[in-house]
Design a protein around this nucleic acid. Structure first.
Lengths: 332, 332
DNA sequence: TTGAAAGCGGTACCAT
DNA sequence: ATGGTACCGCTTTCAA
């Protein structure tokens, strides 16, 4: 069923049908009703692609995330999708994984589809090649980047102060009596670097040394930290706390420690990052940082929506900062 | 940059540019190279919307899930999205929540966008109004429904045998010595009903009675089961196992029991359903059913892809069955 | 090998 | 109030 079929059946022109659809008050009531009856009878729905061609938009936003299976990203994506749905936009979900080429290919695809806006979830998207792809394919599309920055005029940033979050964690466990905490992180994305810097600062403020075996990385593929647990136990004998860069990792670490006869928090303390749901239900429940991901996603959605609708850049081009919050529970 | 700009700059017609793009072998090498150079110089990318209009497809599939934040759905969505990306399709993510109207509105939107295929995740989409909406808006679009069935010619089903899964769980805990297990579920979606039936059958096979206070529901909004824990403790004094319809609920229940001084599995046994990642890391780790969600999603993707590409229905219209697997760990 | 032109299904301007 | 028509950007057939 196209607008032409409707027009033919109603004995009017397609222009009139289009008017009934878009500006019904401009059509004589009698004609309007006749057309509307036929429209309803056939359950007519306009072809969004055709509309998109003339309007040059399909009312779509893209979300790029590394992996929607991580609670942090699924929560963000959920929040973004819900809000944009209410505003009449549909959402294209893109799981890029760690592959740079896939990220760029997705940008190209989204550009070809003329997405109205884009959200990049996480500092992992801060990369020169991605920046170039954006400059090349979507130089005017409003884009929000979380936890990272890119020097392009169409990109706005929302940053969680994760250095401060880490600092708070260090302060907290030192306050609890720890003398030798270790840090475990996954990779060295910008965000992870920020956390590391916060850790170092926190240690410094507490007059604690950061030594050769204080900082550990378990690599991007190992989300639960299993690959470092034995090396740590074999190498460092006297640590009393493990600060994990992520809740999931902390939960894994606690589990592996238990398997090795080490109890948390009795023997050593463990902290997470992110305030995931499982962290509140785990045993022991997790001391962690709430990075306010929902708030960040809401802010991202609002900013992006404003830029899309107003078709102009925002007044301020400074990044928006979101304050994390220390959540003290059982594990540390 | 449109195809016209390129054509003008190259001094050829748009037909030739189009040919260079789509059937380069049909263009004289010299012309082709000249056009390609200009294409590259401007980083030209075709407008997918315009292509979509003439091809009547944007190479898009839709995924409807109640809530992507649930591990089960995010895993399925991830799997689907990854496979379809490899096949050249982008994915529209739709979180419908529990609202029926939102589900139907999403179907309408996806129909307007001429999605090539659709996956409905979960039996919650089995509803007469949804069936009607599909018959009305997308009667010929290939659709896969997981854990449910709908009598429409374009809808295919993939079913997990969750009745059998529940039965296995009952058998297992009875084998462990339990005499009075209780079942806790969230709602009575078709899938939940199937689990319930499996529970009843399992109980019957073990010669255990299903009495007034054997089955509990915590409602759709309560994912962790906190709302039934106290009522159960006050009402039923002598139960020795809690069979939860979902891993997250089991984890919550275990946590709440601990808060009330009850230890799992020492005092009572608890089982989950779904084999989530957190269930393998929790303390105690969760005895559960692996419902093979990845396998189901892969099967869904393959079937859908085949229907989309071949433009014909599948030979068999019987639902595909996926066998669940009992995972025995610490909690029961 | 190449180009002209007819669509694809709408929107919106300009006449009538 | 309504209709004719150009146009959105691209594909594809038919001629040249």
């Amino acid at each position: 069923m196209t607008i032409m079929d409707i027009a033919a059946e109603a004995g009017v022109s397609i222009a009139t049908v289009s008017r009934v659809l878009n500006q019904p008050e401009k059509v004589k009531p009698k004609t309007r009703e006749r057309v509307q009856a036929i429209l309803k009878k056939h359950h007519y729905r306009p072809n969004a692609i055709a509309q998109g061609l003339v309007r040059n938009t399909l009312h779509t936003v893209g979300i790029l995330s590394v992996d929607i299976r991580r609670e942090h990203f699924s929560t963000s994506a959920y929040t973004l999708e819900s809000l944009f749905f209410d505003w009449g936009y549909t959402t294209i979900l893109c799981n890029t994984g760690n592959d740079l080429r896939k990220k760029i290919e997705y940008l190209r695809i989204l550009a070809e589809r003329k997405v109205d806006g884009l959200v990049l979830l996480g500092s992992i998207f801060c990369h020169p090649d991605i920046e170039q792809a954006i400059a090349r394919y979507m130089p005017h599309t409003p884009i929000i980047l979380t936890n990272g920055q890119m020097p392009l005029p169409n990109i706005y940033s929302i940053l969680g102060d994760n250095a401060r979050g880490m600092e708070q964690l260090v302060e907290h466990i030192v306050h609890k009596g720890c003398k030798k905490p270790l840090l475990i992180h996954q990779d060295l994305s910008l965000n992870a670097q920020r956390k590391l810097a916060g850790f170092r600062l926190g240690m410094q403020l507490c007059n604690l040394p950061v030594e050769e075996h204080t900082i550990w990385s378990c690599g991007r593929e190992d989300e639960t930290g299993i690959s470092v647990i034995d090396p740590i136990l074999q190498t460092v004998s006297d640590f009393d706390a493990l600060i994990c860069a992520d809740d999931l990792m902390a939960i894994g670490i606690i589990r592996y420690l238990k398997d090795r006869g080490i109890s948390v928090p009795k023997d050593i303390r463990v902290t997470g990052y992110g305030n995931s749901r499982q962290g509140s239900l785990s045993i022991p429940s997790l001391t962690t940082i709430d990075s306010k991901e929902v708030e960040m996603a809401e802010t991202a959605a609002n900013m992006l929506h404003q830029m899309i609708e107003k078709k102009e850049s925002l007044q301020e081009h400074f990044p928006v900062f979101v304050k994390p919050e220390l959540i003290i529970r059982e594990s540390a």
